[in-house]
Design a protein around this nucleic acid. Structure first.
Length: 364
DNA sequence: GACTAGTGTCGAC
DNA sequence: TTACGGTCGACACTAGTC
């Protein structure tokens, strides 16, 4: 097979950079973009923080309270509520700048994308490097933002590469570099290997990529299942065949909220659930989808989760169907419930496009 | 066995 | 020392059906 050249672009601390765009004087201050929960006060988590805030140990995922603690000596810190609509708007604009450099463009999230540039780079890593630099330059000129770019023979390595030097980095891994490059990595640098996988390996006294290499694929499959085991076996060797493809249509939509207070009271939970159903239904209409499954998600106050779901007879976009099914699932789930619920959510899945359907109906 | 439905877990952003 | 969001996709595992 011909050499592929894949490029991964990742905007640095994207949400915080977006805030700096509309308020440039933030640039000299610590900026923490927060997702406040409905519980009020400082309940919630950090979405992202700029590098000034990171110097104080603040990073995404931390509780807002903890972040405030760490930044208590910087009274100029901006703790801003996340404005996802605004970030999405900018993201769309910025992605359009990048798109034209790609043979195939894959949008991954507001702040990242994969580009297959095999043809455009004429399969030369030198030329690919020039393209990477061009992308960074154009983004900087047109948006004042910095991004980090990774270039390699596959998606996995390009993602690792874009993360390797941040912010404002450009890292290329040629096929000849792969083996040396992998040696420098920690297990957790591999996308898809998180805390649980790391712990499970540690239980077997496996702490490094090199030690993991000593496990044969059957052992890994035994530990993690067929797909995950095979994935890990390949990933630690820098092997990945996933093609860059245009983003697949959404498979599920959901709404979740943190309750004002922990509860096991059906009436209270139902009231919150019905509100979520309304919001979810709006999202379904906006996306022009029909659904054929409804599910609920309960997070108990020890952070353990309970989910219930049900397939419907036919695809529908009826709000009452969501309400009826989710409240019934809630009722069933609460039988013998002793642990109070902290967060509650509702989801629709098995989505299908309404567009084709409505065309057919209007045809008759 | 292949397939579907349902529950729970993990990981990424 | 703790503190803890919302959304989505992938997959493991189990049970039931044909």
């Amino acid at each position: 097979m011909d050499q592929r050249i894949i490029l991964h672009v990742d905007f640095d601390y994207f949400y915080a950079q977006c805030e700096e765009v509309r308020k440039p004087d933030l640039k000299t201050k610590p900026v923490v973009v927060c997702m406040f929960s409905d519980r009020g006060g400082d309940s919630g988590a950090v979405a992202t923080a700029n590098y000034t805030a990171r110097e104080f140990g603040v990073k995404s995922g931390l509780s807002i309270q903890f972040a405030k603690q760490k930044l208590k000596d910087r009274d100029d810190t901006a703790f801003l509520p996340a404005d996802f609509e605004y970030y999405s708007e900018l993201s769309e604009k910025y992605m359009n700048i990048i798109k034209k450099f790609a043979d195939i463009f894959e949008y991954v999230g507001r702040d990242e994308a994969y580009l297959d540039i095999s043809e455009k780079s004429e399969r030369s890593f030198t030329k690919a490097g020039h393209i990477g630099q061009q992308i960074k330059n154009e983004i900087r000129e047109k948006t004042k933002l910095t991004c980090s770019v990774g270039i390699s023979p596959n998606k996995l390595l390009s993602k690792i590469a874009s993360d390797y030097k941040k912010p404002d980095g450009l890292t290329t891994i040629t096929p000849d570099d792969v083996s040396e490059f992998m040696k420098k990595l920690e297990i957790r640098d591999i996308p898809g290997i998180g805390i649980k996988t790391e712990q499970k390996l540690a239980e077997e006294h496996i702490q490094t990529i090199n030690e993991t290499r000593n496990l044969d694929v059957f052992t890994l499959i035994n530990m993690f299942g067929r797909k995950t085991g095979t994935y890990i076996h390949n990933a630690i060797r820098g092997i990945d065949d996933e093609p860059v493809t245009v983003r697949a249509p959404t498979l599920q939509l959901s709404k979740i909220t943190t309750l004002k207070e922990d509860s096991i009271d059906y009436t209270f939970l139902e009231r919150n659930m019905l509100e979520l159903c309304e919001k979810l239904h709006s999202a379904v209409l906006k996306e022009n989808k029909m659904f054929r499954a409804v599910g609920i998600h309960l997070i108990q106050n020890d952070l353990s989760t309970k989910t219930r779901s049900r397939m419907l007879k036919n695809p529908t976009l009826n709000l009452d169907e969501i309400k009826k099914t989710s409240t019934q699932l809630l009722k069933d789930a609460l039988v013998e419930q002793t642990i109070p619920i902290r967060r509650i959510g509702v989801k629709v899945s098995e989505l299908s496009d309404l567009e084709g359907q409505s065309n057919i109906t209007s045809y008759f």
